[in-house]
Nucleic acid binder design. Structure first.
Lengths: 148, 148
DNA sequence: TTATTATTTATAATTATTATAAATTTATAG
DNA sequence: CTATAAATTTATAATAATTATAAATAATAA
């Protein structure tokens, strides 16, 4: 099952209608790995769909988060909530300087989830794993700026 | 070194003054494991320190986050940023029903951090590891509510 | 078709956070 | 010990993300 199928089917399963707006939003979430904010999603989609309202974007994102189909990552140093359409076990790496977020796959995380379940009694719905630091590019910038 | 010593010394090292307000905030962060929001910190401290302003709380928290001395966790299902005075490798478990956040120690996380460093080239400053799901209490509630 | 329901949209309201500048406190120099 | 300078806190206003509400629209069902 592809990511977009997973997103749309989770909406359908929850008894919601597959409107064009919702499909566009799911599509964008499934295609990007840029971890956009609600407003970024709105700005990008309004080009193809000018009548789209920001409220619909928020509603759809909130619904998908509640259903556990996407993740709401925390602030990446820029005070905005970033959304991640990829809920397979992976780690997010946010750069505190340029605010980009990169992914790395982590097979170890699946192990972690089982352990947590056993240790805490929590029924895990999802995870938002955000490491933050300086990406390679910004480390170079900082060094240059500091020592030149 | 205790947590409060770590917090206050990181402020001092950064060249900042240890004002009573900042000490109170560090103290609260070091004593609680409830992952409070900025406003919760403000509400609790203004009882002992009525002239305290919310602005000072935000300034101090932002500074501590920038210094990497505390973590700003993402939203725990309630659209508020929660702060964590404990930056040792551990996992945060947020309940999407009652919004409490529990900790579990995880020795495996230290391994993870080394791996990430090697794989990505990121210089890791900190991590915000937030699993979310239903805590044991809320699982029971849900079952009871559904089937009674 | 007609009635009903869900959804979207537009608008206004809310609220967390930040910006700014005056007032206060703290450190420092004389 | 005072006077000056710098940092910090506070109060106030501004910003901006998010939510609430209700009218307009679209989709479903009888």
């Amino acid at each position: 099952m592809t990511i977009i199928e997973m997103l749309t089917s989770s909406l359908k399963t929850a008894g919601m209608r597959l409107t064009p707006q919702r499909i566009f939003i799911c599509q964008l979430l499934s295609e990007t790995n840029a971890h956009p904010t609600a407003i970024e999603i709105f700005e990008r989609l309004r080009v193809q769909y000018p009548s789209l309202s920001l409220m619909t974007v928020y509603n759809t994102l909130n619904t998908l988060v509640d259903l556990g189909a996407i993740n709401a990552l925390g602030h990446a140093g820029d005070d905005n909530v970033h959304y991640d359409g990829n809920i397979t076990p992976h780690l997010n790496l946010a750069c505190v300087s340029c605010h980009k977020i990169a992914d790395i796959a982590s097979p170890k995380m699946a192990d972690l989830e089982g352990e947590i379940n056993a240790a805490s009694g929590f029924k895990i719905i999802g995870a938002s794993m955000l490491y933050y630091g300086l990406c390679p590019d910004c480390q170079n910038l900082t060094v240059r700026e500091t020592y030149q």
